[in-house]
Design a protein around this nucleic acid. Structure first.
Lengths: 223, 223
DNA sequence: GTTATAATATGAGATATCTCATAGTTTTTA
DNA sequence: TAAAAACTATGAGATATCTCATATTATAAC
């Protein structure tokens, strides 16, 4: 990790203005952190000293269970906060956060700014909306994971991530994300091929029968 | 549902002061709603017109899936908000909320107060903390449900709900809450009895070997 | 470049969990 | 208080998913 200085720092501050997120002037205190691909922004169980705001790049939120299984809780993208939980709760078990690409974050030190942030309407409103989205998303994923077999959840995931009808996610990542074994994921992908929904192209899969995949994914929707 | 008036209304407003939750004076506009046991505070898919704050009673949050399965997402207790999601998002698929006991809520009409609430620091800070708890809880439940078999999750639930080492929750509720079939829940309970962890007493179960149950539940903890 | 590491791939057997059918019991409702 | 509805209970067979073993291929590190 590098803390960017001078021109590099100003470049990002100018390119991604954040004045609209706060009622007070915080620019002076914002650090700009750059992480390489694969670096950990937060290590599991080690609370950070900063509130981060992602301006470029992508990351993943991981939690490791006692039985050795690893869950990929969610992806983090531009305009997401990192460390909000720790900002709000002194005692919080921090999830691990690992970048998947080079990532640039604005970093606001808790030390001087926690109290100020917790008194700022603009920030809190923005945060509330993000948190409610997060809570809703997790509730949906939770109930869907219990109510539907992998078939439906995978169909949904394929549609969400396919690029030009070509699905090419790493199986290993998908296992952690959907919470199933590698073996079973391949099994269901093979079924999709057998049924003529997908066709394997090298290590990727082409969507052949989109409406069939869509029908499976639509089962997850309610209302 | 009844909207309480006059003495009854003042009684609750006096008994449960909420001035500390808001920066402005809202007491005049607060309605006091009383729901009978089993009544729906929100019907699934029908967004409410009020932000509720529960002052007495208990409720359950339900969502129904297209395949007919029902998930009991969580329990609602005193000091929880209801309708916060709808306050923050104009378009939101409302979960169903049903009381399990007679329940009293303060109800603040969105109509006049939405904008004011979204500008109030005290309210937003309090809400942020509740939402972050909710998001964290759902994330934990999600990842645990994928990483552990019912055995562990049920052990945890038994310890959380047992009263004086006697577990007596309704199976049907627990199935919806833990997301398993009735048949399987009974199967695992029977296993616990076989292993000498529990002993059946009528329709309830007495915890005989607490440390064994605790060991199973502790598997869920991380860090 | 070569070696180490990570990712893909497949088979076979085990286990967790579900569905359905059926019956008795308790609670609620009329 | 009788009928309806909700809840408890158990068996048997089906399916979703996991574990482990092993081989191959792609990617990263030296």
């Amino acid at each position: 990790m590098q803390v960017l200085q001078k021109e590099k720092r100003s470049h990002y501050l100018d390119t991604y203005p954040v004045a609209h997120l706060f009622s007070f002037d915080i620019e002076e205190s914002i650090q700009v952190h750059e992480y390489d691909r694969g670096e950990w922004i937060i290590r599991e169980g080690q609370p950070p000293d900063y509130l981060f705001y992602v301006i470029e790049g992508k990351a993943k939120i991981y939690i490791t269970h006692q039985n050795g299984k690893v869950s990929l809780l969610n992806f983090i993208n531009q305009a997401d906060y990192i460390g909000e939980m720790e900002l709000l709760h002194e005692a919080y078990y921090s999830k691990g956060i690992q970048t998947t690409t080079k990532t640039i974050c604005f970093a606001i030190p808790f030390h001087n700014w926690r109290d100020k942030l917790l008194e700022d309407v603009k920030f809190l409103r923005h945060l509330s909306i993000q948190l409610s989205d997060k809570a809703t998303l997790m509730a949906m994923k939770y109930s869907q994971s219990l109510a539907f077999p992998l078939e439906n959840r995978l169909a949904d995931f394929i549609l969400q991530t396919a690029d030009d009808d070509l699905y090419k996610e790493k199986h290993i990542t998908v296992c952690d994300f959907l919470g199933v074994s590698y073996r079973h994921l391949l099994h269901v992908l093979a079924q999709f091929c057998d049924k003529g929904f997908l066709k394997k192209e090298g290590h990727a899969y082409r969507i052949i029968n989109k409406s069939a995949i869509k029908a499976l994914a639509d089962m997850l929707r309610n209302g």
